[in-house]
């Protein structure tokens, strides 16, 4: 890697990191697992003059389950999350998503906070975070704010995190039926990112769908909740024809489907519909 010149900082605390961020403003970039930033530096697509390595802040690595709330530190790696026993029990969708990111080396380095902040439209986490209706905690020297997942993803590579903020934690309310969830994706053959990925978390009651929460990634400029599809499932028995008809609306929230050498927009839309159907069926089958 031959990046442009930068000064490297490795703060030990969040406070120290925030102070550095204030000091360097938009010339600074945060480094956590480096799986997004390093390639960008390598290609000189970004030329920050200060790199603030928050990867050594131990307080950001904690994963805990207490009461009804799951808290995941922003520095938790995908691998940490994939093998976390308590998460497996209370919210298996998290580990299932983590295990499908990139490859083992990427999972060992990459962090949930870094991936979310980067807001790649084909990343895996956004689908699950949306389906779980999670909250993302961001801190600045001015204080802390909580951003709802549905407000977090703004556009291609743009999240709601401000340049003076650091994502510290992801909060998830324990799902009522943790097993009624799934993340399915079609990986792009080269990068492993999602051509399309669908996360579904259901609440079922007497064979009927009380609530469905579906996050879709890879299809549009940002990941989104498939609210039209969710509405079409609410209160319904999940028989094949209901699910198929509802899943046909999986792409309703996206006006512009992504298109590149790997897949056309039409194909991505088609995959979103098929995988939404499969995700709902698989989640229901697991419940």
């Amino acid at each position: 890697m031959i990046p442009t010149n930068f000064e490297y900082f490795a703060p030990a605390t969040i406070e120290e990191a925030l102070q550095l961020l204030d000091q360097h403003g938009e010339d600074a970039k945060l480094l956590s697992g480096g799986q997004s930033l390093i390639p960008v530096l390598k290609l000189r697509l970004a030329a920050p003059t200060a790199i603030i390595d928050i990867g050594r802040i131990a307080a950001l690595k904690q994963i805990s389950v207490s009461g009804d709330t799951i808290r995941i530190g922003a520095n938790a790696t995908h691998a940490d999350i994939a093998r976390h026993a308590e998460l497996k029990q209370h919210c298996p969708l998290l580990g299932e998503t983590a295990a499908q990111i990139g490859d083992q080396q990427v999972r060992n380095r990459g962090t949930i906070g870094g991936s979310l902040t980067h807001a790649d439209p084909a990343a895996d986490w956004p689908a699950a975070i949306l389906a779980l209706d999670a909250e993302i905690v961001a801190r600045s020297s001015q204080g802390e704010r909580v951003i709802k997942a549905t407000d977090f993803f703004v556009d291609v590579m743009t999240s709601a995190v401000q340049p003076n903020e650091i994502v510290t934690e992801i909060r998830v309310a324990k799902p009522a039926q943790p097993q009624a969830a799934v993340y399915l994706k079609v990986p792009q053959a080269a990068s492993g990112f999602a051509l399309v990925g669908v996360a579904a978390q259901l609440t079922l009651n007497n064979g009927k769908c009380e609530a469905a929460s579906i996050g879709v990634t890879g299809l549009g400029p940002k990941a989104f909740r498939a609210t039209t599809l969710e509405a079409a499932l609410r209160g319904q028995a999940l028989d094949d024809s209901t699910v198929s008809a509802a899943a046909a609306k999986a792409d309703a929230e996206t006006a512009d489907a992504l298109e590149d050498i790997h897949a056309s927009g039409d194909y991505r839309r088609h995959l979103a519909r098929v995988y939404a159907k499969r995700a709902v069926q698989a989640a229901a089958a697991r419940a």
């Binding site: 390639p39 290609l43 792009q188 080269a190 990068s191 050498i261 790997h262």
Partner: peptide
Amino acid sequence: LLTGELMDYAVPKAHQ
């Protein structure tokens, strides 16, 4: 060249 990185040029991985 549209396939100028390993992100876009699909060299096979063991799991594939």
